[in-house]
Design a protein around this nucleic acid. Structure first.
Lengths: 263, 263
DNA sequence: TTTTAAATTTCGATA
DNA sequence: TATCGAAGTTTAAAA
């Protein structure tokens, strides 16, 4: 039997079923009216209400309210979930260390419980990621600029990794930062930090602010499908460049399409 | 009846129950062997395996494998979920626009299904957030530095928001960036960006790199519980300062403790 | 609606 | 194990 369902189980039955699920490495789903407390990186409390609780064999624990993508409380995998009856009510406790934290759920009324002996060997295959954008640029540097030549991919520097270190048609070095999504101020920051490392023979300590602009012997290029005006201005003000690149690797991006029948 | 459970429902029963749940604004949970396809910001495919599916009345849709905190596929709230039988199998389709994307789940075998008429009026109360850290600093600026005076909180600048704009005992301006967690290079970037705006009478365009270091008439201070060596070096090299601050607002942080009985 | 930054971010790769 | 950066990030707040 892959699934065992209980309707309105009493506290002892809830704890018993939960223990069976944990012991057998099954997934546990509980529909219940409950109270939740979290103590760890921050602390919080959620008063009584109806939620779905999910416990996975890897220690993952989720508390889902009737709305919202994110669980209102949770515990990432790696920890452990335990259960017991306390003051006549079932309690689920999810714990982990590093960081030390805990989520405790006190169940006032359990409407339903499902134990699920799930088997899943499949892994998610994704297309259209930033890694694929990198591949596309590495193979087609001309889409950024005519005559651009990639010298190094993922070059490590003192302050972090540069996506691409390239040289333009005139032999001028170009530091390239690539983003799959609309560029943000933080992305501008990143490029600025990397560019600051490529001053001619100067260390950041010798060049207050670590700043370098076009003309100092190195160019900085932020590649993304779009950017807000503020980001574009920040780039311009600091002698950096924006290159819009929205379409890339279309073949790869569409490779997993049409595997399921369309509606 | 708050919960209705079906065990091994046939395709028509799955679709019927799902439609009832969507119509009544109930939460739907399905244990099933299924295949998943996503098309939107990227695209992806997940082969057959056992998963838990959750549909919420706000359009949220989640596909959970037996491990991991994050759903392998999902749709945030705001869209809609529909269902129908296709080629003899139940199919769940979650869609939204802006951005346009869709998750389609083809159910090969449904082990269990639960409809849950959930009512939850409670909201999560949290302590120990960065906002509270700001309050604590605003009320106790001396924990950063003796004689420091806060001039403005959340000051908007040309390139973003400065957490605190302050003045030290000597009257020198201090730009303060606050982080609740260990400081990262991106946090250093943020501070560097803000500090670059406070040069004496110079616009960033007039000061290549927008860089400013101690001595230029403005100080930059990154406040966090800790920072990696690389971050500390980046700060030092650029004339910026690190202030360790781990304990803050203990009273507030502990205010929600002990609401549930300890184990 | 767009922008901006936080998040109990999680997750994966790398040193 | 710590660090660093991506993510279909999501969420909330502000303009």
């Amino acid at each position: 039997m892959v699934v065992e369902q209980l309707e309105s189980p009493d506290p002892d039955a809830v704890v018993e079923a939960a223990k069976t699920a944990f012991r057998n490495g099954a997934m546990l789903t509980v529909e219940a009216e409950c109270e939740v407390e979290y103590e760890g990186r921050t602390s919080g409390y959620l008063g009584p209400g109806d939620r779905i609780l999910v416990a996975k064999p890897d220690g993952t624990f989720l508390v889902h309210q009737p709305t919202g993508h994110k669980p209102v409380n949770w515990m990432p995998g790696g920890g452990s979930v335990s259960t017991r009856v306390s003051e006549g009510e079932p309690v689920l406790l999810a714990r982990r260390s590093n960081p030390t934290e805990r989520v405790e759920v006190r169940i006032h009324e359990c409407y339903g419980l499902t134990r699920f002996d799930a088997t899943d060997g499949a892994t998610y295959e994704e297309s259209g990621t930033e890694a694929e954008m990198h591949e596309y640029i590495a193979e087609n540097p001309d889409v950024l600029e005519e005559g651009l030549r990639i010298v190094e991919h993922e070059r490590e520097t003192k302050y972090g990794f540069v996506d691409f270190y390239a040289v333009d048609a005139n032999g001028t070095p170009v530091v390239v930062e690539v983003k799959r999504i609309q560029a943000t101020l933080n992305h501008f920051d990143q490029l600025q930090r990397y560019v600051s490392l490529y001053e001619d023979g100067k260390t950041p300590a010798e060049s207050p602010g670590g700043g370098v602009t076009a003309g100092d012997g190195v160019r900085g290029m932020l590649v993304a499908p779009s950017a807000s005006d503020r980001v574009k201005r920040a780039l311009r003000d600091n002698g950096l460049e924006f290159v819009g690149l929205s379409e890339f690797g279309l073949d790869a991006k569409g490779s997993t399409e049409a595997k399921l029948t369309d509606f």
